[in-house]
Design a protein around this nucleic acid. Structure first.
Lengths: 197, 197
DNA sequence: ACCGGCAGACTAACCAGTCGGTATGTCATC
DNA sequence: GATGACATACCGACTGGTTAGTCTGCCGGT
């Protein structure tokens, strides 16, 4: 136990991030006081401001983490060796599963993004745009090769699908009738069916 | 000019509601101070607390208004004399158009609902559920009669579509390449295409 | 004379961020 | 292997600023 850890061995910065994620998702960014975060993490304000510049930095870090993860996974599926329709289906289903696995991150993402300062907001939007474009490229590839209908602009199709993904945190309940994989399969199926020529 | 109006003739409660709607959408509920609302409405706190019990009541009233409007329109389309697929298409497209017409209400709705107290939140959820169920019934009707595929549970289809509607406030820009009617037609088309048997 | 409609000063609570201080660890030097 | 210099990790009281809601009272209509 050399530094920055407690009895359970998790480093303080990670504990703070975890506590903040849970609380931000539960009560919202503005309604969560710094005091509550540090108490949940078992430290004090001094520790928080030692590792993070501000409360906002904490929020941005939550975003950065989830964005990195999703982009990584999308790239892996999109660049795989398989027919377009299969790659799209896999990518579309995967983002649903990982979103369900991190519902807290998801609800923070779409409810608290506008709480970031303009610069940080811009930074997040840039990252998000890259993700969007990779997904769109996949759809356009299928449209060019004729396996997907070109009736709808690819951009709109992407927004259609990600609307439903963001919406997951509103209605999905782990104890509901459908498992995350079933939901993912259904939503991917809806996307592919909408794209049939 | 007898009471509760100013130079432009709009009653004070409505001016307060309009100012609150705009500001809540712009900066979020928590970031909007009561002082800012009353200044935007051209009155003072005394006036606000004369008509509304609390800041939260103001938010709830915004919800109630938009819910009534949407429910009314859905019922009209769903109960019309026409084939199911046409009624669903019309209803699905209409909710997109009216959402775009009231983007402020939409973003408040999905970003600030969790700021309501538990009781008021429950009340809103009940209303929202009725809306959801009317829409679902429409899809189930089509599934039973065989014009829609039954591959996906109707519930999930509804959430899929409303996810995209909710998401509109994130990406739709009035000065973008697509008019609200074009967006509505495309989104309704995607829904209907996904439901093809 | 009374009352709805409103003004605006006031209060009690809260909160992000600061800052001086302490404890523990590391490393160079003798 | 003792000593001192310095750094890292953290504590917690304090501050300056903000905010929702209250309350007293004025004002114009009936």
């Amino acid at each position: 136990m050399s530094k920055a850890t407690d009895q359970n061995g998790t480093p303080v910065p990670q504990r703070l991030l975890a506590a903040a994620t849970r609380l931000f998702a539960e009560r919202g960014y503005d309604r969560t006081s710094v005091q509550e975060i540090v108490e949940a993490a078992g430290v004090t304000k001094g520790a928080l401001y030692h590792y993070f510049g501000s409360k906002e930095d904490l929020l941005q870090e939550v975003y950065a983490r989830v964005l990195r993860l999703q982009q990584e996974r999308l790239d892996a599926f999109a660049n795989a060796e398989a027919p377009v329709e299969e790659r799209l289906r896999d990518a579309a289903a995967d983002v649903v599963v990982t979103t369900i696995d991190n519902l807290d991150d998801a609800s923070i993402f779409f409810r608290s993004m506008h709480h970031l300062s303009p610069e940080k907001n811009k930074q997040v939007r840039v990252e998000r745009r890259r993700y969007h474009e990779r997904f769109r490229a996949l759809i356009e590839e299928g449209q060019r090769s004729g396996v997907f209908s070109s009736a709808t602009p690819a951009d709109l199709v992407v927004d259609y699908h990600f609307g439903s993904v963001h919406h997951l945190s509103t209605w999905y309940r782990p104890d509901g009738p459908l498992s995350r994989q079933e939901v993912a399969d259904h939503l991917a199926d809806l996307l592919l069916r909408a794209l049939r020529p």
